[in-house]
């Protein structure tokens, strides 16, 4: 019980179980392996972006430009490979570089110019989307070599009980593991937590706060670049509005996963479960034929519910701790 209250991921895990079970029981074909892999494929890009965003949120920041950077990366790839017939892999590298550049710019504007994260990334959100529309002439571009398009449909396997897993899902899982290891077992991970927990104390202890923050934003930018490439490969065309609404879905997934918007606390495992909740919720509602206008209402409610549940958990934990402290002396006597 106590460990359940302590664990950041408990709320999102409960949500996952409830939502999954509810759809599995009420909706035909929802729990089929085919459909679950379909969801995993659709949400692999969001998962990649959310790994970076988790780190930003742990530092106490926020990035609402993720969706626009995904779009810009997709268009960079489309213009270079589709229109200018550059080598598609070189174009992928360029798309990732563009993502990295946007992220680094976010980090520098926030740390060096002291602009609030929400304002700095709001500006990037608008600028990157605008640039994507300008570069593409506001059209989608779809003239990619088969080797690249095939990558979006490539499957790995066979894995026992599941069958063939899309490559993009493997990539997302691999990156999530890397993110988990980085946050949990490296000094950089501890610094990221420290910055979010108390920026002042971290600065005083001689850690380069600016470097840590710029790292988090740059990494997220890079991952958005990758997300843009993955999305382009999945739909076999580069669309200027790719990643539309990603900021909302990614932030909801991260917060639902137990990362606190106050900073200092967060979990990649929680984020991944959060992404899964978003995925099954969307898919389940689509399978039930619920119109999209209702779905966004559901998702908004989920975000509020997640924040409330998290507040409740924090409150219960603090009560538990204070009760424990009250009990300590009596234990000592016994």
């Amino acid at each position: 019980m106590r460990s359940l209250i302590r664990a950041k991921e408990s709320v999102v895990l409960l949500m996952f179980i409830v939502v999954f079970a509810a759809f599995a029981v009420t909706t035909d074909r929802f729990a089929s392996v085919d459909n679950l892999l379909n969801i995993a494929r659709q949400y692999s890009e969001l998962a990649v972006v959310a790994v970076g965003l988790t780190m930003i949120i742990i530092t106490g920041g926020i990035d609402i430009s993720v969706g626009s950077i995904v779009g810009l990366s997709s268009i960079t790839l489309g213009v270079l490979a589709g229109q200018m017939h550059m080598n598609v892999w070189a174009a992928c590298a360029a798309a990732m570089a563009v993502g990295l550049l946007c992220g680094t710019l976010n980090g520098l504007v926030i740390t060096k110019l002291g602009v609030q994260p929400i304002v700095a990334t709001l500006a990037m959100m608008s600028a990157a989307r605008g640039l994507a529309f300008v570069l593409s002439g506001a059209r989608s571009l779809a003239d990619f070599p088969d080797s690249f398009v095939g990558l979006g449909q490539t499957e790995v396997g066979p894995v026992p009980f599941i069958g063939y897993i899309p490559l993009s899902v493997c990539l997302a899982l691999l990156l999530a593991v890397c993110g988990f290891v980085l946050l949990r077992f490296t000094s950089l991970g501890r610094m990221i937590h420290a910055v979010g927990f108390s920026e002042e104390a971290t600065r005083l202890s001689g850690i380069g706060v600016v470097k840590v923050k710029v790292f988090a934003y740059s990494l997220t930018g890079l991952l958005c670049g990758l997300g843009g490439i993955m999305m382009t490969a999945r739909v076999a065309s580069s669309v200027p509005d790719a990643g539309n609404g990603f900021e909302f879905e990614a932030i909801t997934a991260v917060v639902m996963g137990g990362s606190s918007l106050r900073g200092g606390e967060g979990s990649i495992i929680g984020t991944m479960i959060g992404v899964a909740v978003m995925g099954i919720l969307r898919n389940g509602l689509n399978l039930r034929g619920v119109p999209n206008t209702w779905q966004v209402l559901f998702l908004g409610a989920m975000l509020i519910l997640a924040v409330l549940a998290d507040n409740l958990r924090v409150w219960m934990r603090s009560r538990l701790e204070s009760r424990q402290q009250a009990l300590e002396p009596s234990k000592a006597e016994a």
């Binding site: 790719a242 119109p291 966004v296």
Partner: peptide, 11 residues
């Protein structure tokens, strides 16, 4: 069915 925001190709 359909997306609830205009121009959302991916959705």
């Amino acid at each position: 069915l359909g997306p609830s925001t205009g121009g959302d190709t991916i959705q």
